[in-house]
Design a protein around this nucleic acid. Structure first.
Lengths: 329, 329
DNA sequence: CTGTTAGCGCGTTCAA
DNA sequence: TTGAACGCGCTAACAG
């Protein structure tokens, strides 16, 4: 395995010249540049990223922390799309990505986590699905331990950016759409987890819309859980004309309950996951582009790494219907 | 950020002594060991993994290459479980894991891929979903470019291990089960991709069982595609008493077609994905534990890294029924 | 525009 | 049982 020294010798130049060529420094004559490149070619040289990281003190490594609260999240398409988007974009940006599931970090204190990442020479951290209750990471954020990019939580600061869809607007749009289409007297809203970032934002959108259209809103937390959505639906669907859910999984639960109750109610979800196409029920949803969100998260990391201040990035959403025909393509 | 030198000074010893303590060398007196550990504690020292990798020439980094042939695979739970298992086990083994989706590598030659990983100082590669057609990786395997662990392809050698369920046996078991339960004259078997590793193995199991029970086997490739499974079912279901599929997705397609045709046939799948619980059809499947498979893949990597010869690891499977009630828990 | 040199933090001889 | 010194491969002054 050829090293930079070998290339330097072969090209008859100094190592720093080779380094400059490899890193696209401008002040290199075309002549020597070519000689170096030739030597690189002949020796099949490839820079040692590890050595580079050590020397430059810039590892270009970023951790993707995926919060998993239940087995279900360990299999879902949302996190997969997050990973896919981040990995692909990171490759383009020549960043190295370390995938971390929150379960690995269970039981560690903030400082242990910090040291863990320090040991790995992580330069920035992206948080997917951070909840308000996670004290360790909030402590790290407080301490400005790393540059952070948070997905779906409006945390902003000098070294912290966020990327999210406008959940309030999205839920508002969805709710208005349902109200205008079905003209309900009362709508059952199944919210997420009490005091959760996106839960609150979406709930706000639901409230706004119902206030504006003057329809009664019956809102309950169902913890993003299919099971709880089933229970809530059994309990409240009779008194509601429409069911609006803060996640597709809850919507699926609601539909399941409705079928069991043998009554019909218009239902809508939130997220736009493939699974929605399988349940054989007319249902619309807020489509989030998780891949794109993650691409933006990587972009935000790059920006932070370049010394720019944190910013908030809003990714567009759409209201769509997912059908089986779409899904099987 | 304290370095090994700081610790050495603080403890009043040489750096190499610190190094030895950190790496659990035996020839260190308890006294100095303790002094070092105290210094480590006081300074909050954490070893620099990057420097360690450079110095020792052992990065402990392994690449997880996930082959993606269609958008669908980029969202599915199988790959997510693979990643989850690998990441968790790698953490325990103090390995660092680099997630790579095959799409990133598209268009690269074998040597480019090799150099890419060389640059990243990857020491071993795990392949998920390798197909026989992938020339680049087969070339790398031929050239013994890296230690490899292949999931679901029976490739074995001095520096290549595999881990898989016994697909032939599993499909055989499933087929026998269906035959004995439903007593079909003729069974429709929807196989995967022509000339694929697992496709051939499973097909063999199906053939063996039908031969043994003396039932007619009508086998067709459906490319692991829901759409093609639908087409095949429309075409052949009328002439068959039972439909056995080499994947759950194809089984779901078959069920969808059957509903559309308004006829009933016993159907079984293969994989054991959650989605199966949503289709409201009595259906059994071969359950693979993808998480466990991946854990074993990491174990196999460790073994290879320690210089042991490649080996084949068989992970157990089960025949189960996935119901909605199981899924929503 | 180019080459020399001094680290980066750690593992690893090899003397002591 | 310990520590000084060298080197891993590269980047970043600095000098020319």
């Amino acid at each position: 395995m050829a090293s930079i020294t070998d290339v330097a010798k072969r090209a008859g130049v100094g190592v720093s010249t080779v380094s400059k060529v490899m890193n696209n420094y401008s002040n290199i004559s075309e002549a020597t540049r070519k000689r170096v490149l030739d030597a690189v070619e002949e020796l099949n040289y490839v820079p040692n990223a590890v050595a580079s990281a050590l020397s430059s003190k810039s590892s270009r490594r970023v951790a993707l922390v995926v919060f998993i609260n239940n087995q279900r999240q360990a299999i879902d398409e949302i996190n997969m799309q997050y990973l896919f988007g981040a990995v692909n974009r990171a490759k383009e940006m020549k960043l190295e990505v370390l995938t971390v599931f929150s379960t690995e970090l269970d039981g560690m204190s903030a400082s242990q986590i910090s040291r863990h990442f320090a040991s790995l020479r992580i330069q920035a951290i992206i948080l997917y699905g951070l909840s308000k209750e996670n004290e360790e990471f909030h402590e790290l954020i407080e301490n400005d331990a790393y540059p952070f990019v948070v997905v779906d939580a409006p945390l902003e600061g000098p070294r912290i950016s966020y990327v999210t869809v406008d959940h309030t607007k999205a839920q508002y749009d969805m709710m208005i759409h349902m109200i205008d289409e079905h003209n309900p007297k009362s709508v059952l809203y199944l919210a997420g987890r009490r005091n959760g970032y996106v839960t609150d934002l979406r709930l706000q959108g639901a409230v706004d819309a119902c206030l504006e259209r003057n329809v009664h809103l019956n809102a309950h937390y169902a913890n993003f859980s299919e099971t709880e959505a089933i229970a809530m639906t059994h309990k409240h669907a009779h008194d509601s004309n429409v069911i609006v859910c803060a996640s597709d999984l809850m919507a699926i639960g609601a539909v399941s309950a409705l079928k069991h109750m043998d009554i019909f109610r218009p239902v809508c979800g939130y997220d736009g996951i493939t699974l929605l196409g399988y349940i054989n029920y007319r249902i619309e949803t807020v489509k989030q582009d998780f891949y794109d969100i993650s691409v933006n998260a990587i972009n935000a990391v790059m920006s932070l790494l370049e010394g720019n201040p944190g910013e908030g990035i809003i990714v567009p959403h759409r209201i769509i219907k997912i059908s089986y025909e779409d899904v099987i393509m």
